[in-house]
Amino acid sequence: MTTPLSLICSNRPDGAVVLAVTGEVDMSNCAELAAAADQALGRGPGSLVVDLSAVGYLDSAGLKELLTRADRIEIVASGVLGPVLTVSGLTELTAVHGLEPPGRLDGDLPTQPYEPPS
């Protein structure tokens, strides 16, 4: 059983393709997201907008799929996903719309910098 996820692809009036994601994304269903994104990317040469506004949960498995396609997609997300998208660096790789100004989040981030072990 995978976590329920709804993926709806549509064209915006300006021609951009929008993939609206609803539900939660984790390791059990991230492959579905990847497949849908690839299919949507195949629909046209333009950029793909992945709309995560209705996603209540997104973990590193889902992030990986977005990161690997970062140069071809834009993202719309609600503020609740802000820390995850910021920490993962996705906000630096592509445009992310709908978040609160990043300054507000800085205060919540722990001061300890992350260092991968040598």
């Binding site: 973990d59 590193s60 990986k64 920490v87 993962s88 981030l109 722990p110 992350y114 991968p116």
Partner: peptide, 16 residues
């Protein structure tokens, strides 16, 4: 395994 490393990074970023 970039995926998992990111998981740990997330934990450290979101929690203390």
């Amino acid at each position: 395994n970039p995926n998992r490393g990111r998981g740990i990074a997330l934990m450290r970023a979101l929690m203390q």
